[in-house]
Structures are given as structure tokens and as C-alpha cells.
Design a protein around this nucleic acid. Structure first.
Lengths: 345, 345
DNA sequence: TTGTATGCGTTATCAG
DNA sequence: CTGATAACGCATACAA
């Protein structure tokens, strides 16, 4: 009827035994008669007994809950990561508490506080765009809290970082464009304070350099927001106000790539014949647009899964945090579609 | 140093007072000297005291945590809903525990069990495609657990349902197609056991009927999975194997709409000149594809926010569940883009 | 094989 | 104004 859930005591009373006996019987402790076990389990079933995880947490100082701090839930890549996290956590019997920071540092901090209050066993975090100081994380690490960072990872001592090989992904993408005969490849860069943006830019630069193409700073434009509108505007300006005339774009993300594509089309240029485009992330829509968008696929699900596995291994002391090969890097995969392939050079 | 968090007892010991005094001082109870309060707070600060939410939960039988059960995280609409949920929960001081069912009934049930074990204060659920029997929910409702269903809602007593006006959204979409001069409008329907699919189909039917167009059962095809591949195949078959030749599609979701669009293009038909297409959900990619896809926008964020507000109001007894006007329906908005607009009939 | 006592961190109740 | 005690549900060291 009402909410009063049955407890161990209720079972004990019903059977005229002590609650410790019930506790032990329920967990198949050695040294409890089969007869008692049977009866206890029977009554437990009858009363619809369900262990109180809160009481357990208090007792064990373990909540079997991990906290996930993420910039935005409504983001294809992050939602994919969450899915991987949830999957592994579920299979290993852990709960997932989720908060999004909306890219706000204050919210990042307050979420950490709340989660600490709730005695979570560990953190999985991808920090906000506002976060430039990592003191609040360092402190936790120093205190011995298990944290695994993913995707957006800080460069601080003891941090365990799981990331994709952004550098290689970018390098591959730009090399591909070069091989397709594109000569003046622009880069729509991401927010400069994020390591991932820096790595992708580095991959872009090295690919050009290693293929004997000199780097033109005007060809590198930052798209701090990352929407298609923004990059559409930036792309238009690149052609109209500047002397550079890119014949290809390597974008820091797919939205920016789509913006560039739309802008180029609007300016009367043909993709991929006149302009080649490659994005980053491989969002769902890549295969649905026309021409379909080549993109560097990030293994979001795997990243979430891997980060969670490491975190849980640390929590359960199956592994020594000091002994993990860092950083953990996952391979990207360049998916070549129509937007970057010229039938003939 | 190590994990041992400071507790009320630590503060009490440090000041040679009792823990009850500390507890009261921290909460600004009347009847504690300002002097004591000051000192307690000072030490609390110094020791970096943080209340143990788990102990509080045990004491109060309230966890300030709500459980969200959702089919898939990696889904634009659902991720939007989660965002709304998280936003409201955060602002009202609640945690969000998240699980995805991957459309599996067994997982739905086991997630409920886990959450009950964790003494969550209430549920927000959108059930799985496999769920046809709602006994597990009815039982909870009968026991007085607060549950608010959203999007995929069951037709059972006491259920509090938050949904979009799928009927009206579909009706508007089909009416729009008719007004654009399309005559043979097909419907790519969703899984039949979901109310939302039924409602959308009903809207489709009524729109046709009310505009004097008779309904051809062959024009209604179920797309149980909902991927673009599936609907691409189905669309092709519609033209090749069947005698019906639709000149428009109203799809149960955007992925299916894209599939239809791709299939039509592949068959050499022009969109929107020869075939009009309208989707449902207004995923991000709608504005990015060519031609841009008209779609019925669902207020996902608002749905999550609204559902959470209702749930928390019930939990905090600010509102009597019996007195809520049901169902709670949110308006859709038809976003007309290029895929359904003929310059001239 | 089972029972008793204690404690996890907090607060409500009752005394003083 | 403050302290002692019990209780939330459970697990375990120690006794029997």
C-alpha cells in the first residue's frame, strides 16, 4: 500500500530471528542453516523486500554511484559518450548521476560539491569552455578522489585522461585533402583554450608542412562558438574580405563544416569539384546531407565505455592509478564521403 | 589528504561541544548563541566540512534524487528532454540518476528496481518499445510512488502524462501538404504500440478526411525501426512494387523523412517539385540538408522541464496529483522549409 | 548456527 | 542555550 518498504527487521520479526541472521541469510553467508536461509528468502519475497542502498552506502562509505559532469547533453558526441558510460556503469552495477555545466565554470564547481555531498565513488568529467584554471580538480586529485577526464582533458599532475587522437585525425583529414589535389586548405579552428582544438590545429599544420605546403595564418580562422551560422558567416567573409581563396576546408567540427558548405554553395561554388570539405566528429547528419560530408569519426561510445572502465577499476582497486599508461588515446577514423572527393583532379 | 571527510563530530570535538549543537548551529537554529554559531561555522570552513547527503537521506527517507528512465540517450529529442529535466532538477536542488533501456523491457524493469533500492524520490519515464504491459508501473503508482511519464505515455489509471500534441502536429503537417497541392500523401508510420505513433497517424487520417481526400490503406506503411535506411527501402518498394504513386510523404520522424527524400532523389524525382516531404521532431539536421526538411518541432526541452516541475511539485506535496489537469499537452510547431513548398502548383 | 552490540552521519526529542 | 539519546537500515566483530 503505502511507501513503508519492508526492511530486514520486518523479516526478522516475522520469523522471530534476529536481524543479523536475516542479513546473513540473505547474502548466503556460510554458517547459516539452509532451513533458515530458505525461510528468510521466502518471507523476503513475500514482503517484497528490497535492500536499502542508502543505508548500505552509509555503512560502507560507498555509494556505487559515479558522477558525470559534461558540458552539454544535447550534443551528438557527448550523448554518445554518455551512452557508453551508462552502458558500462549499468553492467557493473553502478548508478550514474548526471549534470551538465552548460559550459559554465560556476556550475561545474557547484556540481562537484553536490556530488561530493552525495558520496559518489568517482567522477567522469569533460570540463567547460570557461574552465582555464584546474585548481578545483587538482584539489580533488590530491585528496585521492578518483577522476577520469575524457575528451576535454586538463594538463595537470595525476590526471587520468581519455581522449581521441585528435592530432592524427586532423592529420589524416588534411592529408586526404592534399591527396585529392586541393592546394589552399583553410582550417576552421575551435576554441583555443581546449586541448582538442589545439591538437587538431597541430595536425592540420603538420600535414601541410610535411607535404611541402607552407602555412598561411590567414587560412586559420577560429570559430569559438561552433555553430553552422557562425562558420557560414566566417566562410563568406574569407572569400569576400580577404585575399585568400581557399579551395578546401578542414573544420574543427561538423557543424562548422556544414556552415562552410552552405556558404560555398551560396557563393556559387561546387562541392567537391571546386571546394573540398572535411568535418570532425561524424555526426549523424553527415551521411544525410548533399553532398555527404567526409568527417573524422570519434569513437564516442568507446570513449565513455573506456573512461568508465578505468574509473571503476580504480574505484574497485583493480588497478593502480599510477600505473596506467597515459594518456589513453583512442583512434579516430576518417570517413571519406562525397564532400572531399574529386572524380578527376 | 585521504578521503576521510570531516563530519559534524569532528567539528564538535574540535570545539568541545556536542554534535547536536553543531548540527543546530550549522542550520541557524533559533536558540543557539551567535558566538557558538560563529565558531562552529568557522571550524566547519576550516575543516572543509561538507554535509553527508547519504546520512541525510537515510534519516529523512528522502534522497533528493529523481530517476530518469529513457529509451536512448543518443537521440536528439530525448537528449533535449534530458537537458530540460536536468535544468529544472538542478535549479531545485535535486540530483538526476539516468538510465537508458535501449528499448528493452527487462532493462526497464531492472532499472526501476535499482532506483527503488536507491530510494529515489520519484520517476520520470518514457517507456521502451518493447513495453506493452504496464503492470510494473501500475504497481508503483498504486504504492504511491510519484511517476511522471513523458512522450511515450501509458494509458493506465493514475498516470500523469506529459506529451506533445502529436495529433495536432500531424494534422497541421498534412494540411500543409494538401494546401501545397499534393494529392497522394503517404504516411510513414511509427511502431504501432506507441501512443505517439497512433496519434500521429490519427492526425494524418483526419486531415485527409476533413479535406475530402479518401484514405488508401496502401499509403500507410509502418516503419518499426525508424532509421533512414529502413524508410529508404520502404519508399523504394512503394514505387516499384506497389501501384500507389505518392506525391508526398508525411513521416513519423525525421530519419524516416530523410530516407524517403534520399529514395525519391535516387529514383530521379525532384523534391519538392514532384514529391513533398514533411518529417516530425525537427532534428538539428533538418535545416542542413538539401532541400531543407520541413518538420513538426516538438518542444523537447520544455517537455523535460514541465515533467520535472510536476514531479517535484508532487514530491514536495505542493500539488495534489489527483487535481492535475490531464494529460498535460504541449504544442508543436510546424516549421515549413523547402522540402514541402512548391513555388507553383 | 544464531544473537547482541556497535557504528556509519545526521537530526529530532526530550532533558537539563 | 546546550547536551544526551535514539533512530534511520544495514553489516559485522564478538559472544554464546
Amino acid at each position: 500500500m503505502k511507501i513503508g518498504q519492508a526492511t530486514i527487521k520486518d523479516i526478522a520479526r516475522e520469523l522471530n530471528v534476529s536481524s543479523s541472521t536475516v542479513s546473513r541469510a540473505l547474502k548466503d553467508y556460510p554458517g547459516i542453516s539452509d532451513e533458515t536461509k530458505r525461510k528468510v528468502k521466502e518471507v523476503a519475497e513475500k514482503l517484497n523486500y528490497r535492500p536499502n542502498a542508502i543505508a548500505l552506502s552509509l555503512r560502507k562509505s560507498r555509494s556505487f554511484t559515479i558522477g558525470v559532469i559534461i558540458p552539454e547533453v544535447v550534443h551528438f558526441f557527448f550523448s554518445t559518450v554518455i551512452s557508453g558510460i551508462e552502458e558500462v556503469a549499468y553492467s557493473r552495477g553502478y548508478n550514474v548521476i548526471l549534470t551538465q555545466t552548460n559550459e559554465k565554470l560556476t556550475r561545474e564547481k557547484s556540481s562537484i560539491e553536490t556530488m561530493l555531498s552525495n558520496q559518489i565513488d568517482g567522477f567522469l568529467v569533460s570540463y567547460s569552455k570557461e574552465t582555464t584554471d584546474f585548481e578545483h580538480f587538482s584539489k580533488l586529485l590530491d585528496q585521492g578522489y578518483p577522476i577520469v577526464f575524457f575528451d576535454r582533458v586538463p594538463d595537470i599532475p595525476k590526471a587520468i585522461n581519455v581522449m581521441v587522437d585528435d592530432y592524427q585525425g586532423a592529420y589524416d583529414a588534411v592529408t586526404h585533402l592534399i591527396q585529392q589535389g586541393y592546394q589552399r586548405i583553410a582550417h576552421l579552428a575551435g576554441p583555443r583554450n581546449l586541448t582538442i582544438s589545439q591538437e587538431r590545429e597541430r595536425g592540420y599544420r603538420d600535414a601541410l608542412t610535411n607535404h611541402g605546403i607552407s602555412i598561411d595564418p590567414k587560412m586559420i580562422v577560429e570559430c569559438p562558438i561552433g555553430t553552422d551560422d557562425e562558420s557560414q558567416k566566417i566562410t563568406r567573409e574569407l572569400y569576400e574580405k580577404s585575399s585568400v581563396k581557399p579551395d578546401a576546408f578542414f573544420a574543427n567540427n561538423d557543424m562548422a563544416a556544414v556552415g562552410a558548405m552552405l556558404a560555398c554553395k551560396a557563393l556559387g561554388m561546387k562541392v567537391p569539384e571546386e571546394v573540398g570539405i572535411v568535418g570532425f566528429s561524424n555526426w549523424q547528419f553527415c551521411s544525410m546531407i548533399d553532398p555527404s560530408l567526409s568527417s573524422v569519426a570519434q569513437p564516442g561510445f568507446n570513449m565513455g565505455a573506456k573512461a568508465t572502465e578505468i574509473l571503476l577499476d580504480i574505484i574497485e582497486k583493480k588497478v593502480d592509478p599510477e600505473k596506467i599508461n597515459l594518456p589513453v588515446t583512442l583512434d579516430t577514423e576518417l570517413l571519406i564521403r562525397k564532400s572531399s572527393v574529386r572524380s578527376h583532379s
